[in-house]
Design a protein around this nucleic acid. Sequence first.
DNA 1: AATGAATGAGTGTTCATTCAT
DNA 2: TATGAATGAACACTCATTCAT
Lengths: 209, 209, 209, 209
Amino acid sequence: MQPKRELTFTEGARRAQIVKAAIETIAEVGYGGASFARIAKRAGLSSPGLISYHFADKDELIGEVVANVYGTGSEQIRLRADHPMSSAAALLAFVEGSVAFYDSHRVHMRALVQIIHGYPQARERWVDRANDAELDGIEQVLTRGQRDGEFRDDFVPRVVAVLIRDQLSGALQRLLTTPDLDVASYTRELVTFCRLAVENRDTSRSSDV
Amino acid sequence: MQPKRELTFTEGARRAQIVKAAIETIAEVGYGGASFARIAKRAGLSSPGLISYHFADKDELIGEVVANVYGTGSEQIRLRADHPMSSAAALLAFVEGSVAFYDSHRVHMRALVQIIHGYPQARERWVDRANDAELDGIEQVLTRGQRDGEFRDDFVPRVVAVLIRDQLSGALQRLLTTPDLDVASYTRELVTFCRLAVENRDTSRSSDV
Amino acid sequence: MQPKRELTFTEGARRAQIVKAAIETIAEVGYGGASFARIAKRAGLSSPGLISYHFADKDELIGEVVANVYGTGSEQIRLRADHPMSSAAALLAFVEGSVAFYDSHRVHMRALVQIIHGYPQARERWVDRANDAELDGIEQVLTRGQRDGEFRDDFVPRVVAVLIRDQLSGALQRLLTTPDLDVASYTRELVTFCRLAVENRDTSRSSDV
Amino acid sequence: MQPKRELTFTEGARRAQIVKAAIETIAEVGYGGASFARIAKRAGLSSPGLISYHFADKDELIGEVVANVYGTGSEQIRLRADHPMSSAAALLAFVEGSVAFYDSHRVHMRALVQIIHGYPQARERWVDRANDAELDGIEQVLTRGQRDGEFRDDFVPRVVAVLIRDQLSGALQRLLTTPDLDVASYTRELVTFCRLAVENRDTSRSSDV
DNA sequence: AATGAATGAGTGTTCATTCAT
DNA sequence: TATGAATGAACACTCATTCAT
């Protein structure tokens, strides 16, 4: 988890600058188009060689980019399964928070998506773990909701967890594709969608949430 | 819309052969890895130059690939809004059919997804139009369902249409990512998801679907 | 032993031209200095890329260079152990022939030496086998000569074979280092050197060679 | 010949440290692979720039390396032409001593050989002079031996001197190439080789060596 | 005396594309 | 129609060297 050695202040700043330029470049021209030359130009560096000076190779740079994106979002949208709110509230807050994060970090998210598609190793190296953790969180909330009678008990939690996760994937794609999307109403419908899909219609029980 | 000139039979066959090889290659190694050399090798051509001979440039080849993929799927999963079935049945059949198509055409769909991410221009050039048409179809069914009282009347059809479309995007991602997915149960939950989300809960009406 | 596929006439000519330029370049500036750019310039090619077009990578080019050098020399200096001459005559003819070959192929030999030192894999990949074969040949002649009483019987054939082989190495170095060496007298002394070193001084026997 | 300015103690130590690391690095990865970065890492320096700080350029560093290697060996294996031993004894002691030195200084010698091949200018700049001095020494001993009747008088001293020098080259190559060589028996045969090759067969004289 | 950041030329290799045959 | 040879720009990455601090 710790970097191999301490970074000087200058080095840290340069790396951050390069990572930022890499994110923007990848978001704009895709992973394949994001050459060191283009990234260097965007970062205002004199030479692509400077990137190689600060990063061992392209893989390390991309790893840093991914870490940066995940690091930015990790806490803002984490599921609060331990929170004293109802399972439904926790789930819907997660969905809403995720979309809000995607919306406010479109460039970061676009870069991440581009990397996943353009650099297949990225998935197994960095992405899968984060996705699995997210899925686990959703599954736990769903299971708790079923146990408490908030949610229908006729679905398999893991399957529905995957489904919700995929819906967020779909929402992300939309956000990246449709710049002028009415995010508010989209989010409202999405949350309703999820609520209706999982809630227990047995009114005698679902009302006491 | 019309090709500049008539194609001879041989020429058409060659183009089809190249397009097929391009689809397989892109699906396998991504857009970035699908060089003319690799495509030519897979197609059994003697030289990458032959591709340039039959297609003006890479853009034209990719355009043909996209057209081919859309052409393959267009009829199999078109929404039958004019069909004498209930709106709910039509919608769910569309969702189910779409996933089934994705499942049975993973190579085509993977190529399409790779192109969208690796060649950003592809979206505005070819993809957006097809997506809009699909959205229009879904919207019409939703509107009809609301009018007929099958569906809740408290959602904006276009927004929910987008939402459903995006769910299919998410499902496609899942299919391409998880080769051994239990497609049957995934589809079942997805259809249930959509049904619960749009149906009118007023039992006196929703029961006769 | 056979190339993977037939080469066209043009391709064969180009490869030969490139190999020739590579040999000259390596001989002149060493393995490390022999970049594709320099080789291409010497061969009159428009771009270093053309070398990559004809050879899979630098390793293949170097392999061809080594093969070319060995191919050129293989028959001219092979030891004729089966020849109906005395062992001493065979040995000395081999020594003399080797030096003559080195002398007349200084550029080739210089390239070979440079490769051996600049590209360590070359040794185990291509060189060791040839050297071993050469050593085996010398050893056989020495053994035969001992059996027939031509040579002293108080040396271990393999050790002296190595020694003679190394003397040829030293002679090669000299040839490459001293352009105006008096090769004739050098060779004469070298042959004498070897003869005196191995011959049996028992005059009753050594006189009838 | 003189350094431009006096070196401080610290500076001298640093240069020595760098030269040592350079020798080891060159011996290990060859001249081509011995970048300032690698040398600096082996020397435990913080930056390759420090090498440039202490040496004007790579040429100066290599010059120092060569000087160091020659300096190490110069006294240990110098021919003692003025020594009160027979010429044959002096010659054979020189041969034996040279091989022993090579054997005990393989790293130094390997570095030297690598430099000679990887940096062609090295020969004329530093190596040739040393070699000529060595040759002169051998030639003197040979001449003396001929005059005294110890050696055959039918060879040209300079030519045979070159020949013996070259045999040492060959022996060095062998040592560097064959790590597990039986040095003792190799040396014994080599000495015998040389003795037989130069000694005067007139038994009345050659026996009293 | 030393550091670490920076530079720009150079490395082998791949690319889409062109063109004579 | 098709081939295979050729082109030159681009790729990630390494190099010896410089320089402000």
